[in-house]
């Protein structure tokens, strides 16, 4: 695996390993792979690695790095950078574990998706067409962030891409499925937010009692499955 990387400090206790530009499944795979490698071959002082679209943030304790290596005249940042460079140069690409498709049942429209009609009108489509377009492609989970279990997904079809609401809502119900520009996502917890809410899933995205604590993992693909109110309610009961 030969490609150019750039390592930038994020303060004195973290750094960002840039693996390419833009939103691209191949570059994302590098981020997944490096995260796996770092977790397998941890250096002294390593705290955690957090993959994003095209980079990985590595958190470390510079004092432990300083203590556990006798190379003088080098900062802990330089030592960690050298370690990461070597890990990548050795060329071992950790294949991400087998692709998982997670099905997300969604009740579109109505009380659960108050902005579905707005999104439809915005594009001169019927609500059914919006639902069809939104649910007929799989989305790659590039990263989790913003809130526990909140997935940053690959782009939504331009035919339904819609700008955020001008005034954000004070509270968006957990499980709400939204569109913001070309992004789509699911709110795991009740939070304020400006996304256009087109539906809601009964599935829980944040599972603090479980390991891992989230329904979705970076690298997963998700598929939205439109369901009826009846099915949605049954699902909700099953979960509780």
């Amino acid at each position: 695996m030969k490609y150019k990387i750039i390592i930038k400090p994020l303060g004195d206790s973290a750094l960002i390993v840039q693996l390419g530009d833009g939103v691209n499944p191949l570059i994302h795979e590098r981020a997944q792979s490096l995260t796996t490698l770092l977790n397998m071959y941890q250096f002294n002082g390593f705290i955690e690695a957090v993959p994003a679209y095209n980079n990985v943030t590595v958190y470390y304790n510079p004092f432990i790095v300083y203590q556990s290596s006798y190379k003088t005249g080098q900062t802990s940042f330089q030592k960690v950078s050298a370690y990461i460079n070597e890990l990548i140069m050795r060329g071992k690409q950790e294949r991400p574990s087998k692709e998982r498709i997670v099905k997300i049942p969604v009740l579109y429209g109505g009380k659960q998706g108050p902005d579905l009609d707005y999104v439809a009108k915005y594009h001169n489509l019927s609500p059914e067409e919006v639902i069809h377009i939104h649910s007929s492609q799989d989305y790659l989970v590039y990263m989790l962030g913003f809130a526990p279990g909140f997935p940053f997904l690959g782009g939504v079809d331009r035919r339904v891409a819609t700008p955020r609401k001008e005034t954000p809502r004070q509270a968006i119900a957990p499980g709400s499925v939204g569109i913001a520009g070309e992004q789509t996502g699911i709110y795991p917890l009740e939070t304020p937010g400006g996304w256009q809410i087109i539906g809601r899933t009964p599935r829980q995205l944040f599972l603090p009692e479980q390991s891992p604590p989230t329904l979705l993992q970076p690298g997963d693909k998700i598929r939205f499955i439109p369901v009826t109110l009846e099915k949605y309610e049954t699902y909700k009961e099953d979960i509780q």
Binding site: T35, I47, E48, A49, V50, P51, Y59, M143, L144, G145, F146, A147, P148, G149, F150, P188, P212, P213, T214, Q217, P218
Partner: peptide
């Protein structure tokens, strides 16, 4: 709470 940032847990 370290080790869970990749899941979005602050």
């Amino acid at each position: 709470r370290y080790g869970f940032q990749k899941f979005g847990v602050l």
